[in-house]
Design a protein around this nucleic acid. Structure first.
Length: 362
DNA sequence: AACGTGATCAACCGCTCCGCC
DNA sequence: GGGCGGAGCGGTTGATCACGT
């Protein structure tokens, strides 16, 4: 026996809303509030079911809805929160002001999920797909898996802890937004984000899809315990990877077909994320990372993992994002318009002061 | 111009949760 | 405690558009 439909009444209109219907709904809610959704359509003179009205209001007509393209910061937040919360769109939406869960869900399904998949990251687990590794890397997959398994409980603890924080602390949104949107995150905010970001910490220590590193490369998944022991080790050593296309220049940080170098020799400046789409900021990052000349004073006390997702959506362009990067000569200098930077990981270090912090990836 | 294909997103469907009686 | 109804959530659909052939 099937469930009875939400609208028993036949003859109720379905499908796209007309401007007239929108106007009726808007006018009624502005004057009376929505009250009981089920009773609203009749009162508002709409041939719709209450559910449809509620959906139309929450997803479209509400005055505090921001429409249009998602910003880089919003993308970052979605990805990071998705790593934490999974497909709990409404929970994610609470941390993205003026965005609806439906919009976030759609954006994830149509943009971000594909982007992650293209990078060799499982959108469900936010971990690299094992089948995307090179044979040599795949050979070490077992040990990595074992290593991963040994830490799953810890990761889950971190995840649950962070989730509890999310539930308890509405202010996290501001913290997360600050942490991801600016380069001036405080140590406290970084600490708040660590359980989540540690998840990506795990990822960034794994050779990415199509990486051109030496065969036999192994990945030393260091214990994430440090991310949990905040009191003793507030900012655990984190490994920085710089991705390039192998040309030694250009410094494309991109998930696919990139050669990755460990750069975690010393603290690096956390760069402002207000970068232009021509990739200028990344050049700056690269330069500083290689020379180690960045101003560590800018670090403050903070150190946290930072993921930057390029906002470019020119996937069809000849030099667009994704797998075309490996063949574009490494030019990320923005010449020719859209950049080619797709993903990067900027890991801001405090405690890591020795090259030995680098795992034996290469 | 016609057609096919893929992307996008508003809207729907069915389920769960929760409060009330 | 159990039934009921409303609200909310997440998965999915389908209309529309853009683009390529």
């Amino acid at each position: 026996m099937g469930r009875s439909p939400c609208c028993e009444k036949v003859g109720l209109k379905k499908g796209p809303w007309t401007p007239e219907e929108d106007q009726k709904l808007l006018a009624y809610i502005e004057e009376h509030g929505h009250g009981c959704w089920r009773a609203l359509p009749a009162k508002a003179g709409l041939q719709r079911c209450g559910k449809s009205c509620r959906l139309r209001w929450t997803n479209y007509l509400r005055p505090d809805i921001k429409r249009g393209k998602f910003s880089i910061q919003e993308e970052q937040t979605i990805i990071q929160l998705h790593a934490l919360l999974g497909n709990r769109w409404s929970a994610i939406a609470t941390h993205l002001p003026k965005r609806t869960d439906n919009e976030i869900k759609n954006y994830w399904n149509t943009h971000l999920k594909k982007r992650l998949a293209k990078m060799g990251i499982d959108p469900l687990t936010h971990k690299p797909k094992s089948d995307a590794l090179s044979p040599a890397a795949a050979a070490s997959d077992h040990s990595k898996t074992v290593a991963n398994l040994s830490h799953i409980a810890q990761w889950e603890s971190a995840r649950l802890e962070a989730e509890a924080r999310l539930a308890r602390e509405s202010k996290l949104r501001a913290v997360a937004a600050t942490a991801t949107a600016t380069a001036t995150a405080t140590a406290a905010s970084a600490r708040t984000m660590l359980p989540l970001l540690g998840h990506y910490h795990s990822f960034w220590q794994v050779k990415p899809t199509g990486a051109a590193g030496p065969s036999g490369s192994t990945v030393d998944l260091e214990s994430p315990t440090s991310t949990l022991s905040f009191s003793e080790n507030l900012f655990p050593p984190i490994t920085i990877f710089e991705g390039s296309n192998g040309s030694g220049s250009g410094s494309i940080l991109e998930g696919e077909a990139a050669e990755w170098k460990c750069l975690s020799k010393q603290p690096y400046q956390m760069f402002d994320t207000g970068f232009s789409r021509d990739g200028t900021w990344l050049q700056e990052y690269s330069s500083s990372a290689v020379t180690g000349s960045s101003s560590c004073a800018d670090l403050g006390a903070g150190g946290f993992t930072y993921l930057v997702l390029d906002n470019s959506d020119d996937q069809n362009s000849s030099d667009g994002c994704g797998d075309s990067n490996s063949a574009n000569g490494g030019s990320s200098n923005g010449e020719g318009g859209e950049n080619k930077i797709y993903w990067s990981s900027i890991l801001n270090l405090v405690n890591s002061s020795s090259p030995s912090d680098c795992p034996s990836v290469f």
